[in-house]
Structures are given as structure tokens and as C-alpha cells.
Design a protein around this nucleic acid. Structure first.
Lengths: 215, 215, 215, 215
DNA sequence: TATGAATGAGACTTCATTCAT
DNA sequence: GATGAATGAAGTCTCATTCAT
């Protein structure tokens, strides 16, 4: 049918401030995440989302101008959550930890996010290929990359910023794709891929950011 | 509710052998690749594909049982092309080349494929997230992984096969995702990402497959 | 290739209980009856039915899963109406009436039904020849046959049940076909055929069910 | 889709006189009869008919202007065959046979026709309910009725012609419907219905046409 | 003359979105 | 504010029919 339309200037009709509204809003978002996860974005119907959220379509459209607005809102939410998550992982305190530890922690954090936010996979998927959603994509992964970049800047200030940014982006992209891939088979497979992802990142990043205490 | 349906037992109606038919068939496939690339699978309409292919819907449906059959046929085609491509890159002759060279060549080959087969991105995208298409996915990326696996088996026979397979899969996944990502901005960016992809793979794989002449 | 599909497990989407819905539902049913009557089941389009019913296709599909579901619902409705009608005609009170009177009344009742329910002809027609609809057929004509059978059982208990059932079925079939036929020309013709139908039934049934008061 | 269109002024393109053509024509007619019988008129595709007839659609359309033209031609053929059949059954020689014998023979003849010409059922079915085909219907059943009428005229000349015609029509209609009905279940059922059909006709016609030798 | 690839009108059906209640 | 019935544009697919070869 129709790929998510370009983000309208004001996708949300109703920045909900009342407690009641806020709750309804979140219900819808959660329902959407579930249904997107189950059947994909296109196949998800607004009616199904409304029902799952224990509301009516009418109410759904009170909050969201559009089906795509739900996707955007979800992306927004995930971005915020990610920021919080990675703010912890890449805290200035971590600057002195061995790279392997930092990478392991961040991959695990990422993994935790995937596991607890099933809808994220679909939002991410959509952003990969619908040109309209590149903007979200940027915010999703780039947000992490940003944090990581800051972290690496602290750790290896002499590395040229442009190069550092590129390395960070590539790392995040590779990691997130492998994360996604890790879910394609069973649990054992997932764990193996997660472990290998850490290896991959360490192999790639170690030369750029050798552990300070290694010498 | 129209994510690609499960591959019908006989998705093609008309294995085209006449030159004329063959041409029409390829026209449709090319048109589909273009349109899938432009708007994504779901948003692509069979009518638009037919028009782009300079045919009528009727003709389109003479060849394909289904909209999804086009996707499958496209995947089939890409798989074959990939096999040929990587059969060359990972030829037994290459076993003795430095790893960096092999990786560079294969990333370049992959890049070439992406550049010349725009539809591949969408087919790949679909396979990532539509459960029905996992089978294709397997064939698409796994086909490369298979070749790569054979190559590595020759190069490092003592590495445990299960581990080797995992490493191969992870490499291919990471590479293909980064390849995809490399197209998200301008040409300069693409080249930078490509170069970085090579770095990443070398960093990851070097420990497992040290160059034979290194000693 | 669209003869009525097998009755879906739940052909109705929306057992309408609200007065408003109920009305809409009946509007559609009536419109369908008219259009089926005018052009036949196959040639009737769901759009035409919706328009005739002063609704939109969307609304039509809110009530019916399928085009065929309309046919089924219509058949259901006719069956119920028939049951009521013939429950009166073949009431236990009628057991002692002369056979000619009972037959005359039932043919007239049948005629009345045909006249007031034009769609019945088409539903009946479809059931005759679409194997999928045999089940409905059974209910439509067999429902009458059932009532008639009970009636005859009271009247002539010694007649072997299997035979009685056969006689009843044959009578109903013959009568309903002649009824149908009676509409193929003008009014005068119809009345003649109706009269002759009564004769035919009396001639056939009299030997089996002589009037009790004849002695 | 579309009910059979009104009989075009010249439904046949090609009254085939060459032996070769004649054969092709009959092949198509037979194939159509089979397919109509199997799936009904609407669901039968011209392509399927052509394939079954071992020809191409192009050839099919060389003989028939239209899908409906096939139905008409089939009806034509059946009408001719029926005429021949009933010309024998109701030969002047039979005028002096007991009514029960004549009826039995004609019902059997009819039954034989149904059994050997499966397509007849569908043609008959279509004619019953598609207003456009009433003309064929007339020819199909009326042709028999005509023969029967002549027969009865010989047998009971004093019966008013209009009445006689009506009686004949009613008899034929009832008989043909019951015949049709007799095929709706198993073989045993069919035979029972056939026997009962004879009873019904005898009961109806005996009063009008008492056996000459009864006195 | 025979073939069958090509055509495209039109059928059925879904689902995002609106709006009267 | 909430509801959900109503709407209808738009998509997929079929099949009668034509016409170039």
C-alpha cells in the first residue's frame, strides 16, 4: 500500500499532558510496537492497533495524524530511551575501562534494548529502506554513535574527528545489523552472534583505541 | 495485510524459453527492481511495474502468479549472479593471496553488485524482516557465506567448522549492512564507508586467518 | 472462476443488533436480492449491490465477509421465512382438511413467497447447480419438505417413512420448479400453471393420502 | 462476471462445412460441455475449453463469436438430439400403447439423455435463470413438449388444444426438473426419483389420457 | 488458417481516515 | 472527549477477446 509518508510538520495532534491522555498515548504506542513486531509496519492496521490498545480508532487519530505518525513517535521514544541507556554505558567513568569491557557492555546494553523493545526492530527495519524515514534512522543509530563518539573523543583526542566519527558510525551500524541478525534463529545462535559481534568490534576498534593501561 | 506471501509452489507461470518471452520476462524483472528500489516492495504496485516494463498487467500475470513471485524471481536472479561473482573472487587461486587483498576484492565485488543491481537492496531489505522470505535471505547472503566458508576452509583447515561458519556469516552480514549503509549519503561518504568496511573485516578476520606468508 | 465459494466458517462479520445496523443489513440484503434477480448471482457486482442499498462497498463488507456471504445470508433469511409460512399451512389443524385444500393452500403460499421475494428465485437457482451451495439447497427446499413430511406422517402413519420422504421431496421439487416456470411468461400463463401444478400434485398424492372423510 | 449475452444475430462465425472444420467445431463443443459440467458456465474459461479441445483460443474464436455462442451452439445441438430421441419415443406407433408404458419410456429416454450428455444439465441450468437464455430454454424443453403435444393430440383429439399444450408443458417441466434433481445424490436415490417421476406423471396424465383399452 | 502472447476493463476486497452521535 | 460506523480510493488479479506472426 503506502510506505510511511514524509513526517508531517506536526505529526502529533495532541502532545498529551494530562495523565489520562499520556496513558492512552503510551498504550497506543505499546500496542503499535507489538503489532508492528508481529506483522510488520505495512501489514499492521490502525484498527488492530487501536483494539490492542483498548481504544477506538477515533481515539487513535486524536493522538496521531497518521499511521506513520505512530512510527515516528515510536522512533522518538526509542531514541530517547537509547540516549539514556548509552549515556550510562559511555559515561566519563568508563573512559578508563578496557575497550573490551566497554564494548561488551554496550553490546549487551544494545541487546537488552532489542529484547525488551520488540518494536524497535521494525522501526529500525522501516528506517533502513524507506527513504522517508532516513531522518529517523539518523536519529536512532546516530544518537548512539554520537554518544560513542564523545566517548572516543575523550579516550583518543588526537584521532582526527572526521575519521573518528566515521569509525563510530561504522561500528554502530555493524553492531546493530548483527544484533538484528542474531534474532533470526534460535537462542543459542543469538548468543553466539552476540559474542562474535564483540570480537568483531574489538578487532576493529582496538587499533584505534588501544587500552591506556596496556603499555 | 500484504507482506509477501509464502512462496507458492510454482511462482512462475511460464518459464520463458522463447527469446521474445525471455525478454519480456527480464523487462518486468528490471522494472520491478527499479520500482522496488524507488518506493519499496509494499508500495510498489503491479500496475506501475507493468507500465515501467512497457507491458500490461495481464502480461505481467502471465509470467508471475503473484506480486510476491516477482520478488522471488528477482531474488533468484540475484542469487545466481552473486554465486558467479563470488565464485571468481574466492577462487582456489586466491587462497594464497594476502587476506587484505581478498577482502578488498570481495568488498569491491559486493559494492559493484550493489551499484549495478539497485533492486538488490530492496530484495535484501524484504528478506531481512519478512519472516516468509527468510528462505530467500538464506540463499542470498548465505550463498556468499558458503563460498567464503569454503575459501576459509582451504585456508585454515584446522579452525572448527562451526566456528568458521559463524565467523563467515557474521562477516557477510556486517559487510552487506555496511554496504547498504554506504549508500545512505553521498559518493564521498560511500567510498569512506567502503574503505572502513575493509578495515573492519581485516581487523576481525586477520586473527583467524593469518596470511600464510606471514611467518 | 468465481462460483460462490464454500460457506466461510463465519460468513457474517457483524451480527447486527443495533436498530441502525439491522436496517443497513436488511437494505443490503434487499438490494442484493433485487440485483441477483435482475442479472443473476455471478453478474451481480458487490458495488452495484452497495449502490442499490444506498451504501458504500466498505459498509457492505463490514457486514459480509464475501460476496457469497450475501447469498448465504439471503438463503438463511428465506429459509426462516419459509419455515414460518409452511408451519402455518401444514399446521396439525390442517390434517383433517381435504388434500386438495391443503395442496391448494400450500401452492398458493409458495406462490405468494415467490411473488414477494423475488431474490428467492436466484438463490434457489444458484443452489441447484453450484455444488458448494447444496447445503443451502437442502435447507431451502428440504425445510418445506420436512414440514410436509411431518404433516403426511400425521395423515398416513402407516406409509413407510422412507417412501414418504421421497414422495415429499419429489412433490416439493416438482412444485417449486413449476412455480419458477410459471413466471417465465405473462400473468395469465402464471395462473394457469399454478392451477395445473395443483392438479399435478393432487393426482400424484391422492393415492397415497386419500382424504380421511372420503369413506 | 457476465451472464451469457443475448444471442447475437449470428453467433456462429463459421458454419463449418469442411470435414476438418466440422471436427474441430465438435471437439470444442464437447470440451465445453465437459467443462461446463465440471465447473459451471461462469467459471468455465474459454482457454480451458480450447485446451480441452486440443485447440487454441484463436481457433475457438474462429468458430464462436463469444463465450455465450458456445452455450447457444450446445443448446442447438441438444435440441436436435432431443428431437430425434423423442421422435422415436412418441412415434405414431406408440399412440396405442398404455400411457404408463409411454411415460416410462420417455422418462427413461430423458434419463438416458441426461446421462450421456452431461453438458445438458448446465445448459439447462443456465437457461432456467438467465433471462437472456429463455429463448434457448423454450427450444430445449418446448421441443420435447411439442412432440409430446402432437402425440397427445393423436391420442385425445377432443381435449382443447390450449389446455393440452399447458398440460404437456407442465409435464415436461416437472419431469426435467425431477430428472435434474435425481442427480443430486447417489445412484440409488436417482433410481428412486426416476421411478417416482413416472408415478407422478401417470397420476397427473392418466385422467386426461385414459388408456384406450381400459374400457 | 492456426496460434497464443498481449491486452485491459473490471471484479473483489482492504484499510486509512472522517465525522455524526 | 470517545466511539465506531461509514466511506471510497486504490490495489491485486482474472479472463474474454484481439491480432501479429
Amino acid at each position: 500500500m503506502n510506505s510511511p509518508s514524509p513526517c508531517p510538520s506536526e505529526p502529533l495532534r495532541h502532545l498529551p499532558q494530562q495523565a489520562r491522555s499520556r496513558q492512552r498515548f503510551n498504550q497506543i504506542l505499546e500496542a503499535a510496537a507489538e503489532i508492528f513486531d508481529e506483522v510488520g509496519y505495512e501489514a499492521a492496521t490502525t484498527e488492530a492497533i487501536a483494539i490492542r490498545a483498548n481504544t477506538s480508532i477515533g481515539s487513535l487519530y486524536r493522538f496521531f495524524t497518521d499511521k506513520s505518525a505512530i512510527l515516528y513517535a515510536l522512533a522518538e521514544k526509542y531514541t530517547e530511551q537509547m540516549q539514556e541507556l548509552f549515556a550510562e554505558v559511555f559515561s566519563p567513568d568508563a573512559v578508563h575501562l578496557p575497550l573490551a569491557v566497554v564494548i561488551s557492555q554496550s553490546v549487551d546494553a544494545f541487546e537488552h534494548f532489542y529484547l525488551t523493545q520488540p518494536g524497535y526492530r521494525v522501526v529500525f527495519a522501516q528506517t533502513q529502506f524507506s527513504p522517508e524515514l532516513q531522518a529517523i534512522d539518523k536519529r536512532l543509530d546516530y544518537e548512539i554513535a554520537l554518544k560513542l563518539n564523545e566517548f572516543f573523543a575523550l579516550r583518543q583526542p588526537q584521532l582526527e574527528p572526521a575519521r573518528r566519527k566515521l569509525i563510530t558510525l561504522v561500528s554502530v551500524k555493524a553492531a546493530s545489523s548483527l544484533q538484528l541478525f542474531s534474532f533470526s534463529e534460535d537462542e543459542a545462535f543469538r548468543q553466539q552472534v552476540v559474542a562474535e559481534t564483540k570480537n568483531l568490534l574489538i578487532g576493529y576498534l582496538q587499533p584505534f583505541f588501544p587500552d591506556p593501561d596496556t603499555e
